[in-house]
Simulated scan of single mutants.
Amino acid sequence: MTTQSKGSENKGTAQLTAAMVLSGTLGVFVVESGASPFNVVFFRVLFGALALGGYVVARGWLRDHGFTPRTLGLAVLGGVFIVFNWVLLFQSYENTSISVATVVYHTQPFYVVLLGALLFRERLTLAKVGWIAVAFAGLILVSGVTPGDFASGGTYLTGVGQALLAALLYGLSTLVTKRVTGVRPHLVALVQVLVGIPLLLPFTDFAAMRGTGADWGWLVGLGVIHTGLMYVLMYAAYAQLPTAKIAVLAFVYPAVAMVMDWLVYGHHIGLVQALGVPLIVAASLKVTLAKPSREVTAQVTPSAPAPAAPQPR
């Protein structure tokens, strides 16, 4: 590796680490805003669209954007999945905890693999099936759900289900977005947040936002920091990093989220639940990196979409 390429990779590592650390603070911003999940997501996409739109315009990327009717339709569909994925994840924070919801949600890579095999006949090897089974064994441990919970129901079980459904929607969005080619990923992201504005408008309770006061800062932060800045950092990093490093650094996000949940709210997962975390981490890395041994740098160019790595949560 040349000095220049090494410097580029180090810069990408710093950018992606910063993005994942910021992502790990998202749950605190959601909870501290005091708004309902639908209101939170509406104002996140509103402020996020302003931030991303400003960046895209400043870079001059609206000219020769590369969208066709087909790719624009796919970007819009991916946006529908992403927006409701956020709503479900934020509802899961309320019903479980940031820690549990985040780790359960991090089963997204396995949904991508399973949905790819089911919908697009992508190859599903026996090894991947085995690692997916390991991951879901870890999921059972992390969730802390017992047979009695299924009998009694309750908000905790509902919250776990919401995190799983959010991961499923994320997986669908990833599969759809992977098929958008010839367009800068920043423009795809901008379309996805713009879609959320009219989509969530009927569900947004503006009356409940009266008297929000200083808590507006948390909502603005979700749009500007956790949507605008986060995307810019991640996409800049993807262009400079090998896939293996992207996969490993993705786990900074749940680690930071768990630490923040403990520091701010005193929530932490129990010993038995903690045993499931390394199972999910190991299985995720094995599935994500189950590719030819030759390492390929994940290029982000106008002719290629961003790799399927975690988006801002």
Rank of each mutant, 00 (worst) to 15 (best):
G48R: 00
A49Q: 06
A49N: 03
A51W: 03
A51F: 09
A51H: 03
L52Q: 03
L52I: 13
L52G: 04
L52A: 05
G53C: 07
G54M: 09
G54P: 10
Y55G: 06
Y55C: 13
V57R: 14
V57P: 00
A58P: 05
A58T: 11
A58S: 14
A58R: 15
R59D: 07
R59E: 12
R59K: 14
R59P: 14
G60V: 08
G60M: 07
G60L: 06
G60R: 02
W61H: 12
L62C: 09
D64M: 04
D64R: 15
D64A: 12
D64C: 05
H65E: 06
G66K: 00
G66C: 05
G66A: 10
F67T: 03
F67S: 06
F67N: 04
T68L: 01
T68D: 00
P69E: 00
P69K: 13
R70Q: 06
T71V: 08
T71G: 01
G73T: 11
A75H: 05
A75M: 07
A75R: 00
A75P: 01
V76S: 03
V76H: 01
L77R: 07
L77M: 15
G79E: 03
G79A: 15
V80Y: 05
V80C: 11
F81R: 04
V83E: 01
F84Y: 13
F84R: 01
F84K: 01
F84T: 02
N85S: 13
N85F: 00
W86R: 07
V87F: 01
F90G: 05
F90C: 10
Q91V: 12
S92I: 14
N95K: 13
N95S: 14
T96M: 06
S97Y: 07
I98D: 04
S99R: 12
S99Q: 10
V100Q: 08
V100K: 07
